[in-house]
């Protein structure tokens, strides 16, 4: 920090605790003595020149972000090639950049590029990420950034892979929740212990926002799930025949399941899932009389 003028240093010290924030010129001006625009200009130039500040464009206006001292030191330790690569990766922000794009932009020899990336990655300046859209591409971004939803695929993805276990756990939880609100609580001593329905016109079935709220309040996951995400889950549960929409599609209700209510015909016969069903013929080598499946099926009496 000794390389900075006093004013620049004051501004830097004031803003660096909040270094993720984007500052506008006006906000910076607050830290300049007498709010002198000329001093501001000098200070900004100084900070930019030393690498303590970066300009970014937000819409039509320029905004600024401060860089931590460690980051500055880091950059300074880089070779010029590494710095070039780093800059490009940095500019790709949360989207990340494909190695092939990087190569054309930097115009570096592949071996050099690979070496640079290795060094940078080794020093934990950058990280390789997987993109849902392009699962085979090698994509880099700064180590401390979180990839965008387009890259990660949203809450259902972990390392660009759909997280089936996570989704299934959520599906089960949501189904249970909706089911618990779909039927009246059993009255103690109620006859037969059968589930009875709510009367027609009942409006207490949970809505999408009820369910979203419930997921938020439960400690199911730290991932922030929007209503759209919950709706995707509910859709799957509807496709699975576990829930249905009620009250004009605004609320959800569990479909009652009764064990063995429907007697399966075809699929409980030996033929229903027979691996040689298509080959079975009355006069063929595979027929009903010599069928071992029937034999076993009948043995289970």
């Amino acid at each position: 920090m000794s390389d900075l003028q006093a004013v620049a240093r004051t501004v830097y010290d004031a803003c660096i605790p909040n270094h993720q924030k984007l500052y506008t010129s006006n906000e910076l001006l607050a830290h300049i003595p007498k709010r002198d625009p000329q001093i501001l200009l000098e200070t900004v130039n100084e900070l930019l020149g030393r690498g303590y500040l970066k300009t970014l464009k937000q819409g039509d206006t320029f905004v600024y972000r401060f860089v931590t001292k460690e980051a500055v030191d880091r950059t300074r330790a880089l070779t010029s090639d590494e710095a070039l690569v780093f800059q490009h990766i940095e500019s790709s922000a949360r989207e990340g950049i494909w190695t092939k794009t990087l190569k054309t932009r930097t115009n570096l020899h592949p071996t050099v590029l690979t070496r640079c990336l290795k060094t940078l990655e080794h020093q934990r300046y950058i990280k390789a990420i997987k993109s849902v859209k392009y699962p085979t591409r090698k994509i880099y971004m700064l180590a401390d950034l979180t990839p965008t939803i387009e890259v990660t695929g949203g809450p259902w993805f972990t390392d660009a892979e759909l997280d089936a276990d996570f989704i299934n756990a959520l599906l089960v939880a949501v189904e249970r929740f909706v089911a618990s609100r779909s039927f009246p609580k059993q009255k103690p001593g109620n006859n037969l212990g059968t589930i009875i329905p709510f009367e027609a016109g009942y409006t207490g079935y949970p809505t999408l926002s009820d369910i979203t709220q419930w997921v938020k309040n439960s400690n199911l996951t730290e991932v922030d799930l929007s209503e759209a995400d919950i709706k995707a889950l509910l859709d799957v549960l509807i496709f699975d025949g576990k829930l249905e929409r009620v009250i004009g599609g605004t609320a959800f209700k569990a479909i009652r399941k009764i064990e063995g209510a429907v007697k399966q015909g075809f699929t409980e016969a030996p033929c229903g899932r027979c691996p040689v069903f298509d080959l079975c013929h009355e006069d063929g080598p595979i027929n009903a009389a010599n069928c071992v499946y029937f034999e076993k099926w009948l043995a289970e009496i």
Partner: peptide
């Protein structure tokens, strides 16, 4: 497609009854 499978399966069951009777 389903009906065709049903009919075939039913035929097999009846043929099996014949076989068991035999």
């Amino acid at each position: 497609a389903m009906l065709n499978d049903f009919y075939k399966s039913m035929s097999r069951i009846m043929q099996r009854i014949d076989h068991e009777r035999e």
